[in-house]
Design a protein around this nucleic acid. Sequence first.
RNA 1: GAGCCAUUAGCUCAGUUGGCAGAGCACCUGACUUUUAAUCAGGGUGUCCCAGGUUCGAAUCCUGGAUGGCUCACCA
Length: 494
Amino acid sequence: MPEVTMSNTEELNELMRVRREKLQELRDHGIEPYGNKYEATDYTQGIVENFEKYDGKNVKLAGRIMAKRGHGKASFANLQDMTGGIQVYGRLNDLGEEAYEMYEKLDIGDIVGLEGSVFKTRRGEVTVSITDIVLLSKSLRPLPEKWHGLKDVDLRYRQRYVDLTVNPEVRKTFVIRSNIVKEIRKHLEGLGFLEVETPMMHPIAGGAAARPFVTHHNALDMELFLRIAPELYLKRLLVGGFDKVYEINRSFRNEGISTRHNPEFTMLELYQAYGDIEDMMELTENLVSSIAQKVLGTDKVQYEDQEINLAAPWKRLPMLDAVKEYSGLDFNSIHTDEEARGKAKGLKLEINGNESWGDILNLVFEEFVEPKLIQPTFILDYPVEISPLAKRKKDRPELTYRFELFIYGREMANAFSELNDPIDQKQRFENQLKKRDAGDDEAHMMDEDYIQALEYGMPPAGGLGIGIDRLVMLLTNTQSIRDVILFPQMKPRD
RNA sequence: GAGCCAUUAGCUCAGUUGGCAGAGCACCUGACUUUUAAUCAGGGUGUCCCAGGUUCGAAUCCUGGAUGGCUCACCA
């Protein structure tokens, strides 16, 4: 058992030094400040919400002391557990001198187990009158202030445990996140999807246009990439006969950090054999609106200054129509790459001179249309050059059966009828390689094994990806992706 | 990666023209057996982010750096 020594106290501030002295004092009195298992019978929320059922009953609770109000020979405190908090009340008469002294000397932040009977105070607050209390963990650091909580966002993300302890709305956000993921699984299970796990370390980083993280396997002496998307592995499973698969996957992209980007993020990807993009739109509408209903109890959600109506069906708008509507440019009457670039210059868009018709269409779309798409909108028919894994439209081969879903101007989902023609797919990869050679290090890599898989035959399929972090942001009305990721990436201090 | 802004007690924040470092909460001592942002009396606990510079004197002005936030770029 370590003793408190001069060498480790002299660096501590007053508050921490006092707590270490209390710790030693407890041990001197034969009280172990770090206890063992405690079997609670109830959680605080259940008692507060069902007082009539609990009135006069004996309960055992475990949690953290969050506030103290001493009154001499009787003292109030607040106990917080996973579900919420409750007031507790200890009296010298009930506890005896030794236990009462320990109770009175508890610090905010200490973790205790206690037993007592439920009653209501004169002022109407549900309270547990303590008959027995045991210290389970002595807290040696002061918690942030009860009234303002922890606001410094840097500290909140670096010390999420403190953030969760003192900011109830943060705790609520992560409970909602957990419920969203749970409901996604339930929904997909109900539709007959199989949850699978595919590699996170890829010899070829495929399935998306993004820069990967690179790592090294020592025993195999080979370079590996952290996955940027699970797509190509999941579609190999379609080849293998798993007709409905999904993966709730962590993927990694070696790019800038912002309020909407974390280097590791969570996506839902699913594939449905013998389906197409129409099935994906229906599935997306139903999935998102029913999750909102189940998790929030409504499909009308407030996000920042807008009420978003998630009730299906959602607006469907071909990209060409959307661009025409918001920018005035009709790409149906623009026929060459050069002409398209000229129009982009006319709109003062920055271009490098290598863009194709489809690249420019997408640029104009991002600039003029995306921010306007507040209510859920499926944008359809993406150009083939920016959709190397999507099936070409039958009547317009320069476009694909692809949609992206936008809500509040943000991309929330991406889906297509999957390209299952191995010869076309190989050509698409080769075009991507040309882009790579031209210096685009986010262009797709060639994946020969994936081509080989397609050559065995992949059923026609619809595929869908949904950004879970962004969905959670929408449903929790949070403004930064860091508010929905428990431990967002931060630069180390010093 | 670029621009703008921020960093002062454990936490939330003031700090005037460059002139002794402040408040609330928390904490410590005492009083108080149904309080609840408990109350009452007393107590200030500090590497003013770091390193230089200007100055009689710097939390304050200047230069460089660190970390963070926002915007932009890249992307989902």
